[in-house]
Amino acid sequence: MSTVIDRPCAAPATPWRYLLRQAAREFLWFGLKEARCCVFVVTLLVAVFLTPRAGVLGIPRYDLLLLAAIAIQAWMVRAGLETLDELKAICLFHVIGFALEAFKVSASIQSWSYPDFAYTKVFGVPLFAGFMYASIASYIIQAWRVLDLRIRHHPPYWMAATIAILIYLNFFTHHYIGDYRWYLAACALGLYSRTTVIFRPLDRDRRMPLIVSFVLTGFFIWLAENIGTFWGVWRYPSQMGAWSMVHLSKWSSWSLMVVMTFTIVAGLKHIKTRIHIPAD
């Protein structure tokens, strides 16, 4: 009489071709969703490309870009791509961005300039410029919904808000008391060292350190800034004679700006239920 011994069977190996197909599908969907999140940014860049520097029918370029930005924003709200509550966050960042622009282009600072004439220039800044900053907030807002973002191990809000305020102030004060961006970057790195962002490109959750998303977003903003200066929308002093690439150090500035924007969006969207803050 023989005895049959049941032995656990090894799970069949997943074919590598299936894994590659699945990875390709997930990457494709991630790209499509990222494009969906960049609707405001991309359409505004298209407007920059299509608007002649001399303007159209006597209307200066900066004024046309302002009309285009307002039209894009109104269309997004009307189409349901953004809610009125989300628009509040974008408008707030528009004001914050304009205040920074007015300071940076002032006669005493002259970090960069807008060389063309416009009727809608205030303190040397065309009003459409605030929309370029607001587009960062728009991207984060869209990504939260489209990619189903969830945040784990977010630092206490008062700490996050403090770092965001100091980052913003440093954009002003470094002209007088020194640049402390790397100290602030180190503080932000420590503050968000345990924080992860969970997102869903297709049918399963993926994770990424939140600080990595800050750096990656800052890099793509730096690329967009190179496009804007190449088209002569604004210029740094080093680009007055001939265009040159925006200095790589601006990447760190934009990454810190993303940290500040994330904090504003997180507060104004009332998404605390989707952000995990450890009790300890």
Rank of each mutant, 00 (worst) to 15 (best):
I198Y: 05
V42I: 15
C91G: 08
L248R: 10
T162Q: 12
E26T: 07
W231L: 15
S252Y: 10
N226Y: 04
A23L: 09
L256G: 08
A68N: 04
E34L: 15
F214S: 08
D205G: 00
C91H: 08
M132T: 08
R61L: 09
D280W: 01
A102I: 09
I271R: 12
I211T: 10
A23F: 04
G58F: 06
V95R: 02
H175G: 13
T173A: 14
F199K: 04
P201I: 02
C9G: 02
H94T: 05
W158A: 13
G55T: 10
L256C: 06
G58A: 09
S255L: 08
W231H: 11
L202W: 03
K269Q: 12
G241Y: 07
A224Y: 06
H174R: 15
Y114N: 08
H175C: 13
D85T: 11
V48R: 02
V146W: 01
R207G: 03
V122H: 07
I167P: 00
L248K: 10
W16C: 00
S213Q: 03
P126K: 03
T217Y: 04
Y192I: 08
V246P: 03
L64W: 02
T196S: 12
L256V: 07
T195N: 05
I198C: 07
A69C: 04
A99Y: 06
S106E: 03
A74T: 12
S238V: 14
R194T: 13
I72L: 14
A10W: 01
F131S: 01
V77H: 01
F131N: 05
R78F: 08
F40G: 07
W231R: 12
L67T: 10
F49R: 10
M208Q: 05
R36E: 15
M245I: 10
K272C: 13
W182E: 13
I140R: 00
S111T: 11
I264Q: 09
F123V: 12
K33M: 07
T120K: 06
F172D: 03
A266E: 11
C91P: 00
D116K: 14
Q239Y: 07
M208E: 06
D63H: 04
C38P: 01
Q73A: 11
L84P: 01
Q110A: 12
G58W: 02
F117C: 08
P115R: 07
T195L: 06
W158H: 11
I109Y: 02
I151V: 15
W29V: 04
A47S: 15
V125N: 01
S111A: 15
L81T: 06
S135P: 06
I227S: 02
E86R: 09
T3V: 13
G178F: 08
W112Q: 08
V56W: 08
V197Y: 10
H153E: 13
A137C: 15
F123W: 13
W29H: 13
I277V: 15
